[in-house]
Design a protein around this nucleic acid. Structure first.
Length: 293
DNA sequence: ACCCAGGCTATCC
DNA sequence: GGATAGCATGGG
C-alpha cells in the first residue's frame, strides 16, 4: 500500500497523516520501545528495530526490502488504509474527539507469544510497571543483541522462558502473576496449549481457548486477540472503557457483556481500533471531556 | 493510611 | 448465571 524504497541500509516509507510513529509506540500496546529524540527504538522479531519519522517520511534503519516486505510492513500496518477506517468510525462527537487526539495510531501486529505473556503480566497493573516486568523477563531470559555499542535483549521464547522458576519470578517482583506465567509456559512446552491451534480458531473459539488458561480472563484474552492476532473487532473491556462509557457516553454500569454489545453496535469490525483511540484520548490526552454531553 | 493500575480466581448465592 | 473478597507490587 504505502510506497517504500531502499536507501543505503535503510528503508524509507511515504506515509500519510494516519501514521504517527510516536503515538503508535506510546499508546499502551507495546512495552518494549522507547523514544530517543526523533527516534523510536526497541526489539521485535528477535532484532533491533529503530525508526524515525519526519512529517510523511518514515525511516526504518538497518532494514532490507526483504525484511520490510517479510513482516515489518504488516507489523506497522502499512498495508492498511487507516484513513478509511477512521472515516467509518467517526460517527459521534466523542469518537470524533478521540480521532482528533489519536489520529496516527495503528494497532501493531505484534508476536502472539510475546502478547500472551505480556498481557498476563498486565492484569491489575499499571503501564510503567508492566514495562519494567517485561523488560526484566527479557534481560534475564532473552538473548542479548549488541547494537551501536549498547545491549538490547530479545523477548524469550517458550523454551528460554521455561528456565524461569516461580521463585525467580517472585524475586523479580511478579507477585501473584509468577505462578500464572510458570504454569502457562509449562503447558505450552508440554503441548497442553498450542499457539498454532489458537491462531487457526475463529475469534469466539479462540477467546474460549484463551479463557482456559489460568491467569487469562476476558480482558487479557481480548488484548491478546487484538494486539497479537489482529482481531480488530475485539474491544477489550478495561477500566478505561467502562469509564468512557459511563462518563463520556453517559451509559452507566456497563457489564462486560453489555460493553461488547455496545462496542459492536457502535463500531462493528473495527471496535478494537475505536477502543484504542478512545483509550489513548482519555488516558494520555484528557481529550474527551469537551465532547461528552 | 488509602486508592488505583489495560483483572483474575475462588467462592458465595 | 451474577456479585464479592483476596491477591502482589509500587506510585500517587
Amino acid at each position: 500500500m504505502a510506497e517504500f524504497r531502499q536507501r543505503g541500509q535503510d528503508i524509507t516509507v511515504e506515509v500519510t497523516r494516519d501514521f504517527d510513529l510516536f503515538k503508535i509506540f506510546d499508546c499502551g500496546q507495546a512495552f518494549r520501545f522507547r523514544r530517543q529524540g526523533s527516534e523510536v527504538i526497541g526489539v521485535a522479531f528477535g532484532r533491533v528495530l529503530r525508526m524515525s519519522q519526519e512529517g510523511q517520511l518514515l525511516t526504518i534503519y538497518d532494514c532490507t526490502a526483504a525484511e520490510y516486505l517479510g513482516g515489518i510492513e504488516q507489523y506497522l500496518s502499512l498495508d492498511m488504509d487507516y484513513g478509511e477506517i477512521l472515516e467509518q468510525l467517526d460517527t459521534d462527537a466523542v469518537m470524533s474527539a478521540a480521532i482528533g487526539a489519536g489520529r496516527g495510531i495503528r494497532i501493531l501486529k505484534q508476536e502472539l507469544w510475546e502478547m500472551l505473556i505480556t498481557f498476563i503480566i498486565s492484569q491489575n497493573n499499571n503501564i510503567p510497571r508492566i514495562t519494567k516486568l517485561v523488560e526484566a523477563l527479557c534481560v534475564h531470559y532473552g538473548k542479548p543483541l549488541s547494537y551501536n555499542g549498547e545491549i538490547l535483549y530479545t523477548f524469550p521464547d517458550p523454551f528460554a522462558l521455561s528456565r524461569a522458576t516461580e521463585a525467580e519470578l517472585t524475586e523479580l517482583k511478579f507477585g501473584y502473576r509468577a505462578g500464572y506465567i510458570v504454569g502457562f509456559v509449562q503447558s505450552v512446552l508440554d503441548g497442553g496449549f498450542e499457539l498454532s491451534r489458537l491462531s487457526q480458531l475463529d475469534t469466539p473459539e479462540a477467546r474460549k481457548y484463551l479463557l482456559g488458561v489460568k491467569g487469562i480472563g476476558g480482558k487479557v484474552a481480548d488484548c491478546i486477540l487484538l494486539f497479537g492476532m489482529a482481531r480488530y473487532e475485539v474491544c477489550p473491556h478495561d477500566v478505561w472503557v467502562k469509564r468512557i462509557f459511563s462518563e463520556r457516553y453517559n451509559i452507566d454500569d456497563v457489564s462486560e457483556k453489555k460493553g461488547y454489545a455496545l462496542a459492536t453496535a457502535k463500531w462493528g469490525k473495527y471496535a478494537g481500533i475505536a477502543q484504542q483511540l478512545l483509550f489513548y484520548a482519555e488516558r494520555y490526552e484528557g481529550a474527551l471531556q469537551a465532547a461528552a454531553q
